[in-house]
Design a protein around this nucleic acid. Structure first.
Length: 151
DNA sequence: GCCAACGTTGGC
DNA sequence: GCCAACGTTGGC
């Protein structure tokens, strides 16, 4: 079992949206590194659900991988924001996993609070200039965040 | 294959 | 809205 963190702007898709839909495809990722991490995901992997561009930004809840990486349909939608003219059905470029709702944390854990926690000091999220929207998280980091969520 | 220009991310 | 960081594009 591995652990991950995935960022989203809650105006576009929030933990409450996932709760309502129960599960959804994590479409729209257009960064190769982030895509490659999704390809590594296995069923049941747990995902920290991160809200970005909010005041404050932070970890909002927990999701899990419910479908392995598959072609991201939005790359084929000509009128869509995520259309990629280089992609074909035979040779898709972008893939995404499906994530299922697990829980919304009783409180949002602000980014600023994560910075102060020793066990989290090496988190990808906290590295300077890390804009990666899909990131691996170590078990130690994951456990640390779960603990914080219960404070 | 270099690298300048450009676009995007995301905290502040 | 600003801007630092950094990925991508495209001319050469």
């Amino acid at each position: 079992m591995r652990y991950w963190l995935m960022k989203t702007e809650p105006d576009a898709f929030s933990i409450d949206d996932l709760k309502r839909l129960k599960k959804d495809a994590w479409s729209g990722v257009r960064n190769y590194q982030a895509r490659n991490f999704m390809k590594e995901m296995r069923l049941g992997d747990l995902v920290l659900f991160y809200h970005s561009s909010t005041t404050p930004p932070g970890v909002a809840g927990l999701a899990k991988v419910v479908a392995l990486a598959h072609p991201d349909e939005t790359q084929f939608e000509k009128k869509g924001k995520y259309f990629d003219p280089k992609a074909t059905k035979a040779k898709p470029i972008w893939h995404c996993v499906d994530v299922g709702f697990v829980k919304k944390f009783p409180r949002l854990i602000p980014l600023d609070e994560l910075r102060g926690v020793k066990a989290l000091k090496d988190m990808v999220l906290l590295r300077r200039g890390s804009r990666l929207s899909v990131q691996p998280v170590t078990e130690k980091e994951f456990d640390g965040i779960i603990k914080l969520s219960q404070l």
